[in-house]
Nucleic acid binder design. Sequence first.
DNA 1: AAATTTCCCAACCGCGTGGGC
DNA 2: TGCCCACGCGGTTGGGAAATT
Length: 258
Amino acid sequence: MGRTPCCDKAAVKRGPWSPEEDEALRSYVQRHGSGGNWISMPKKAGLKRCGKSCRLRWLNYLRPDIRHGGFTDEEDTVIISLYSQLGSKWSLIASQMKGRTDNDVKNYWNTKLKKRLLAAAATTDDLVSTPTRPRVPRLPAALAPTPASTAAAHASLLPSLLAIPTVKTETYTCDDFLAPAAGLQDDDPFAADGSTSASAASSASTNWSAENGGAVGGGEGTFFLDFGAAGSDLGTADDHLQLPDGYYYPLDPSLSLV
DNA sequence: AAATTTCCCAACCGCGTGGGC
DNA sequence: TGCCCACGCGGTTGGGAAATT
């Protein structure tokens, strides 16, 4: 019994892809697309690979618009802020970042961002006693060697960030997200005037990116995250949240924390 | 210089979901 | 209506590269 395998593992090649295989896959997909059927595609392309493996190789590596490595401060910020709201919905997070794949974002978070935050936490001993909502300086600046005060500020967000509840997402799909083709903008996603993501979400009718266009991305400004929005506030005050460039997350009030 | 450890990322695995029949 | 199949996703692993001892 059990689940039937997607392919005959004895008959397919596994492990790293050779340049020849990459070229075969690339040329086939560019000429024919996946044909809507990844399972049958390897055979047509002359590849001894599982269809799932072909799909993954194409999506994560061979696609022409893929960027690898070299995450910018702005991308760090977007990842952190979206993770604080969505949890480990890597495909959704990656969809907001031009040229990034879910696998890339996931790896980057697991190997770098999370560790940096943990390191920041290790430098302070008043992790959770912050009486008010944590307000942290723009993260990328603090990812470098940090003064104690900055490390403490970052550490204060860890309980929220590293214990993000899983947010049920069944009620919406990627198609529900009005994500324009345009990629990551230079502006930080949240206002420089100290408003929080929660307050931004509350001002539902505000064209956020337009009104706060003079944002602080890449500059010296201070960037505030309100990780309280990741918790019980989610989707309660309003039913949506506007991100830069019109990104619109329909935070369905029926979403529940599990 | 060699051995060992740590880091990073490509790839794999298994499950949930949705469409087609 | 229920079953089957393929897709897409998130979690995990394996191995090469880099760093350290």
